[in-house]
């Protein structure tokens, strides 16, 4: 019974934590949604354990916990792939921005040099 309470508390804590991050604008929606779904699913399963054991046995798992582990591993894999994807996208944006910045900086430098020369000539 105590493990059920632990699960329930953990799920509630996760939900509060995610909502708080979202509220403070630290986490963007697209990442928050996934974790909120996880928190709600954990909450439901913790509140009503027969649901987990029922699904697990229906799918042919001898030990319900194994079903839980499989789902968790799959979820974590999906999240890390998504994060790698996001990081790659960020790197592309960053290098594009850096290139733009460098080319603009050179142009400003050149224009500045031209303007300085022009004002010197006028004096």
């Amino acid at each position: 019974m105590s493990s059920q309470w632990l699960g329930l508390l953990g799920a509630i804590a996760l939900a509060i934590f995610i909502v708080e991050l979202l509220r403070r604008g630290i986490l963007r929606e697209k990442f928050a949604v996934l974790w909120l779904v996880v928190a709600v699913a954990a909450l439901v399963v913790a509140a009503y354990p027969p649901l987990l054991t029922g699904i697990a046995s229906a799918l042919g798992f001898a030990v319900p916990a194994n079903f839980l582990f499989l789902v968790s591993a799959g979820l974590l894999l999906a999240v890390s792939v998504q994060l790698s994807f996001e990081v790659s996208r960020l790197e592309r944006s960053l290098s594009k921005l850096t290139e733009d910045h460098v080319l603009l900086a050179e142009r400003v430098e050149r224009l500045q040099a031209g303007a300085d020369e022009g004002s010197d000539g006028a004096q």
């Binding site: 850096t98 910045h101 080319l103």
Partner: peptide, 25 residues
């Protein structure tokens, strides 16, 4: 000479890509 100064290290490939963009522009 024209100097393009990367704000951080991007590797030879990244440096050359800027040079090619400069050439194209």
């Amino acid at each position: 000479v024209v100097t393009l100064q990367m704000p951080y290290n991007v590797g030879v490939g990244g440096a050359m890509r800027v040079a090619f963009r400069y050439a194209l522009d």
